[in-house]
Design a protein around this nucleic acid. Structure first.
Lengths: 164, 164
DNA sequence: ATACACCTGTTATTGTATAACATCCAGCTT
DNA sequence: AAGCTGGATGTTATACAATAACAGGTGTAT
């Protein structure tokens, strides 16, 4: 994976197709059920390089007759997150497809507050100051939340453009 | 500041007294008003090395007749956070007193999921992998969220105790 | 006296999340 | 075949988090 997939130009159709394919393979391997609701929610997430709120997802499910009540969306999201197909972005109380599905890893996110794009990067938890502090105080880390809010390259360029 | 204040044994009374004193001095210097509500909320936060939710704070304010409605608590918290006397812990949707009041810094938190204690450490945003990824992709960071969930030294000891 | 900035009070609403219980179905057991 | 079981889904109700919008109050400066 590149440093922070999401900002570069890319053929977006492959994001969805490949992501779905990988998820199907992994579910088959592990005996997990990628049911219609779960599959559809994963497609929503793969379709955007931004985080979707649970209620935005619920609205889409409603539109397709796949569910009406909040627990439907939250259950699908729980499944996707707990099996490594999606992440929760704490800063946004929202969810995004994982860029490294099925592999246990600590994600880091770069969140553009201008256009809403969220890019996933890999955190190197062991070398970071957080891990240093934990080690120094005898704290055993289970999970890390590493997120940055700021401005992505495109929006920076747009701001700096001489004529607007 | 130590690596992660909050886990060690300490005379807790001084946390509150010193924190309040520093806040008063800073407010005086900067012409900020540490009103009764704001002061009291800061005392609540200083009184615990864990994060308090806005509604838990509101309940306490209600108990003292200092406010009845959510905006009262949120305004006080906004004041404390925006002037560097408290932080928001994104993972918990809750608030904690700042360990380095009045100084602009990027906090990092170690959250014990067993006892709820939250320790503040300093993140070294520049050297961390997040900053590396941002630099590599041309992303300009405005604010970072660095939090770890895990088990604090005391709870680790308790789990490992041979007789329970 | 009045204008302004700032703090507080209140109503109403929106957004996020989960507890608890009912139902359904596929696959296995007896 | 009947029954059990685990996992998935359906539904109601509620709790927790946050803010918009407007009203009122208090101090200071001009």
């Amino acid at each position: 994976m590149t440093a922070a997939h999401g900002f570069e130009q890319h053929n977006h159709a492959t994001c969805i197709r490949d992501g779905l394919q990988v998820a199907e393979r992994i579910c088959a391997e592990r005996g997990l059920q990628l049911t219609p609701v779960r599959r559809r929610v994963l497609e929503y997430l793969l379709g955007e390089h931004r985080a979707l709120g649970a209620y935005e997802i619920l609205d889409r499910l409603r539109g397709e007759g796949l569910g009406k009540q909040p627990p439907v969306a939250y259950r699908a999201l729980d499944f996707l997150v707990s099996h490594g197909f999606a992440h929760r972005v704490e800063k946004l109380n929202a969810f995004i497809a994982c860029g490294l599905p099925g592999q246990r890893h600590d994600p880091a996110f770069l969140i553009c507050s201008s256009c809403g794009t969220v890019a996933e990067a890999l955190s190197n938890s062991q070398s970071d100051s957080l891990a240093q502090a934990a080690k120094a105080s005898g704290f055993a880390i289970k999970r890390t939340v590493i997120e940055a809010e700021g401005t992505c390259p495109s929006c920076t360029d747009a701001e700096e453009a001489p004529c607007d």
